[in-house]
Design a binder for these strands. Sequence first.
DNA 1: CCCGATTCCTGTAGGC
DNA 2: TGCCTACAGGAATCGG
Length: 271
Amino acid sequence: MPELPEVETTRRGLAPHLEGHTVCSATVRQRRLRWPVEPDFERRIAGARILKLERRAKYLLVHTDRGCAIWHLGMSGSLRLVEPGAEVRKHDHVDWVLDSGLCLRFHDPRRFGALLWTDSDPAAHDLLAHLGPEPLSEEFCGDYLFRVSRGRRQAVKTLIMDGRVVVGVGNIYASESLFLAGIRPDRAAGTISRARYGRLTDAIKQVLARSIEQGGTTLRDFIGGDGKPGYFAQQLNVYGRTGERCRQCGGPVRDMVLGQRSTFFCRRCQR
DNA sequence: CCCGATTCCTGTAGGC
DNA sequence: TGCCTACAGGAATCGG
């Protein structure tokens, strides 16, 4: 599914084809996404000139001279440029026809994605206004996590997956980061030392940066037809490896449920 | 305020 | 082989 690295990869891939171009027209085939696409979205975007593509958390912001479109890919969404006249497949919910002749197409089987419009600063939009810092920013550091975790009894894994604390840390990266930092996912956030939060923020930055370098390869990118995960899965230390041997100590990888999310860890390497 | 549970949706995996 | 069910997950929102 699109994690932060994949959204960033999407942004980098689309930017040269979108920035400076005009949206001639838009077609919305399915309005019922995570939130309904507003009725006059097509009218608002038609004729708009795209100024810049920006990523904030897992949102892709398309700044235009008329306002800003806010995309979210949910967990099964993708944005691709297709040739005009390309066959429309099931779950192809939105098209933007560009003045270049290319078409920006949104495909999203599970419809957890969203397409919103705002006439004002998107940072002030309800969905963005209360988000925590970007994980790759300097603001996100051990001191910060230490400070915001004081007095909290919730598990550290659910803390780092809380978008008000830090954005873009999905379920896979949360387990992987905690493994790299040697911290048990269910440790109460408020009892973890400043030094260990330093190691955790380093681990989060490392795992996200490495994934961006790989073009955001995720679990759902397959090699061959056997359903086996792709490149990135080969680098996973614990995610989805229940019962297999820990790469570090050889012990069995364990799983548990935290905040209704499957969670993977090694009892010996994480405390 | 804090935090766990519920909700949206459909493709896929696992059980029988 | 095929049907049926459980499950996965981002993140807002509800409920205690």
